[in-house]
Design a protein around this nucleic acid. Structure first.
Lengths: 230, 230
DNA sequence: CCGCGTATGTTAACAGTGTTTACATGAGGA
DNA sequence: TCCTCATGTAAACACTGTTAACATACGCGG
């Protein structure tokens, strides 16, 4: 299907333009903001006419989706690598996953923004993107499931807990990218990430029996809170 | 400074075009996606020529910033109203703030997206937006400080905890808008929000002496978990 | 080895966008 | 009354996404 002469001469045909366009887009995102990622700019960067991309992507959004998918795949790799590297304890592993996530967002901000940008609001149109991004969620869910099996996290709605964890770390990344957290300081963001994940993991720890029945939990009884009505 | 004839006739001058453009933009966002919010479209909606907005906004981004500021103000109002309405307990209040936040995001998705969109990546350019958005953070921080004063939340870095709370709820909103959580079901999202905030608040609760030293916490000892090495 | 179909590229054009420049209007103070 | 200046318009530019018509050359069947 795809011919790949690799280091092709200046021929009429590019060889693997689809790949070239994705890499061109990544290069653009790497040196500029997300607004600079334009179909024509990617075409220029790949040394090709403005209409050429339409042989490989139906839309500008399709190119963006391909870039985002590449991003999710890279993010997944880094998260997994980070998790296996820190095998001292399941908690530590999950925490390192979170830190790897934050690091990725800080190192490739424009790419990260594109991964969650509005151009892909309807991800149903890009099935492969949906699938790849689901893998990073699965990694988090797996981490939490592992904690549950180890008896470190209470049994219960693992899906909700994984979503919560993802939301926490994704929200931190967004706030950091908007300059509202850590102020561009990666080390500070990592500290914040560790603190935040520890807070959450502590809340998910085993003897939290009352997550879905907020009244009269052990924590509140211990802390002397009034039992709320309703 | 600004004349406001209010219900101005079809005159050459608009009366209060700046306000009219912001409302036009909100109308566009209300019925379409964020991509439909264009300077020219707002001008059309306001019944004015394409160049007219430049008498009131330096940029397209400046209009977007004004819209975002309006959004943050509305969000702030709803959060505060929701907090004062649910005064049964500080925990409950903070939780209702979170739910109000999520509800806002679900009801006005395009507006919410604009509030955190990449066009305002450098919020330093829009000082008033920065200020207004800081108020919603202050509301969260105040809620957590209140919990600390009441002895319900451990003393410690209140700023980090407030950021954590904001990140959690913002992340949930983003995931929901991307169709990754709750699947467009507001009630489901509210449940998820309550669960998530309870998990976090439980983690922040008073007898959490070991937030920065994850090993050998009281919760883990009580639950009979093995003490992790290191 | 040849010829040809088709995947892949180019060129030219369209509508729509942000933005600027020069000009028009009219509201309100001197 | 008039004249000034904030506020509007009109026309133009460069740029974008997208499409249609045309060009090239890769690789397969003969």
């Amino acid at each position: 299907m795809t011919r790949r002469p690799r280091s092709a001469p200046k021929s009429y045909h590019h060889g693997d333009l689809r790949e070239g366009l994705v890499e061109a887009a990544l290069a653009i995102l790497g040196r500029g903001s997300a607004a600079a990622l334009t179909l024509r700019a990617a075409a220029r960067e790949a040394g090709v006419s403005p209409a050429a991309p339409y042989r490989h992507f139906a839309d500008r959004d399709a190119l963006v989706a391909a870039v985002a998918e590449r991003g999710f795949a890279a993010l997944f790799d880094r998260m997994r690598a980070s998790a296996t590297r820190a095998r001292v304890s399941p908690e530590r592993g999950l925490q390192e996953i979170a830190v790897a996530y934050l690091r990725f967002a800080m190192e490739r901000p424009a790419e990260y923004r594109v991964m969650f940008g509005p151009e892909l609001a309807d991800r149903a149109r890009h099935a492969d993107l949906q699938q790849t991004s689901t893998r990073v969620f699965a990694l988090l869910a797996e981490g939490i499931a592992g904690l549950q099996r180890a008896g470190r996290v209470r049994a219960g709605d693992a899906h909700a807990m994984a979503l919560t964890a993802w939301a926490l770390v994704h929200g931190l990344a967004m706030l950091a990218l908007d300059g509202r957290a850590a102020d561009g300081d990666l080390a500070a963001l990592e500290r914040l990430g560790r603190t935040a994940t520890e807070l959450l993991m502590f809340g998910m720890a085993t003897p939290a029996a009352a997550v879905h029945s907020p009244s009269n939990t052990p924590a509140r009884r211990r802390s002397g809170a009034r039992v709320p009505r309703q």
